[in-house]
C-alpha cells in the first residue's frame, strides 16, 4: 500500500474485474440475441412497436413514469407478481429486446405495467376503444377511475378548450367534479394519445421456451384474482 503506482494498478484491476464479469461476459452471451419466432402468434417476438407507441415510449421516459411503475414480472416464488395478475409468466431478456431505453424501474408506488396492454378485456380487439378511453381518463385525472390513487394528474397532456360547433369525437367523457365547465371540452394532445398507444403495446404474454406460459389457472385463488383483473375499474389499481 506504500507504492502509488501499485495501489493505482491494484484498484484498476479490481474495478476492471467487475466490468468483465458483469458487463462483458453477459454481453458476449445475450448482447446479440435475435428475435424468436412464436408459434402462437406466427410472428417474430418481440415485434417492433408501431410508430405512435414508440413516440409514447418517449413520453413515458421523459415524464419519469418509471419512478413509480416497474416493468418486470418476477417468477413464481419470488413475490406475488403472477398471482396478482400482472402477467401470464415471468418476463425474460427476450421481452425487452426492442425497448430503448429499457425502463425496468426499481420502485412500485403504482402497479407493474409489463402487461397493462392485456388487462381489461384480455386482448379482445373489440375492447380497444374502451381501454383507450379508460387510460385517457386515468391520465387526465387518475381519481376519476381509481378513487384513492396517489398517481399525479397529467392535465398538461390534455387541452381544455371551448366547444366550437359540435363536440369533438375525441373529447373525454368526464362527470361530476372532474367535468370541464359548460361549453368546454377536454381533448387529448398527441402526447397523451401516443402514451396510451404505448401503454396498450405493453404485452409480454407470448410463451417462450425459457419462460413458458403455465396452463390456465385451476385453483380458486388464481381464478378470483384474474376475474377481478378483468373488471375495468379495479384492474389497473392492482
Amino acid at each position: 500500500m506504500n507504492s502509488t503506482p501499485l495501489l493505482f494498478l491494484g484498484i484498476l484491476i479490481a474495478l476492471a474485474s467487475s466490468w468483465w464479469g458483469v458487463l462483458v461476459a453477459p454481453s458476449l452471451q445475450i448482447g446479440n440475441a435475435p428475435t424468436v419466432f412464436s408459434k402462437e402468434t406466427g410472428q417474430h417476438y418481440p415485434a417492433n412497436r408501431p410508430g405512435l407507441a414508440q413516440q409514447g415510449a418517449e413520453i413515458y421516459r421523459s415524464e419519469g413514469c418509471n419512478s413509480c411503475h416497474s416493468q418486470l414480472v418476477r417468477p413464481e416464488g419470488f413475490g406475488n407478481d403472477l398471482a396478482r395478475g400482472w402477467g401470464k409468466r415471468r418476463t425474460v431478456a427476450q421481452d425487452y429486446l426492442r425497448d430503448n431505453p429499457v425502463l425496468l424501474g426499481s420502485v412500485r408506488i403504482g402497479p407493474d405495467l409489463s402487461n397493462i396492454g392485456y388487462r381489461m378485456g384480455a386482448g379482445d380487439t373489440n375492447a380497444q376503444p374502451v381501454m383507450v378511453a379508460y387510460h385517457l381518463k386515468h391520465l387526465y385525472h387518475p381519481r376519476t377511475v381509481a378513487p384513492g390513487s396517489v398517481m399525479p394528474a397529467y392535465p398538461y397532456l390534455f387541452e381544455k378548450r371551448p366547444i366550437q360547433g359540435s363536440p369533438s369525437a375525441s373529447a373525454l367523457k368526464l362527470e361530476g367534479a372532474f367535468a370541464p365547465p359548460e361549453g368546454f371540452e377536454v381533448v387529448p394532445t398527441p402526447e397523451a394519445t401516443a402514451l396510451v398507444a404505448y401503454l396498450l403495446s405493453l404485452r409480454s404474454g407470448v410463451s417462450l421456451a425459457e419462460a413458458p406460459v403455465p396452463p390456465p389457472p385451476t385453483n380458486a385463488v388464481e381464478t378470483a384474482t384474474s376475474s377481478t383483473n378483468a373488471a375495468p375499474a379495479s384492474a389497473p389499481t392492482r
Binding site: A14, S18, P26, I30, L72, F78, R90, V92, L104
Partner: peptide, 29 residues
Amino acid sequence: WSLAFFAPWAVTAHGDPFPRWIISVGIAG
C-alpha cells in the same frame, strides 16, 4: 480490497429478467 473487488459485482437481484447465472454472479458478489 474486498470492497474494491467485490462490491461492483453486486448488480442483480432475485427475479430480474436476466439468465439465472447473471443473477447468481451478482448475488455471489
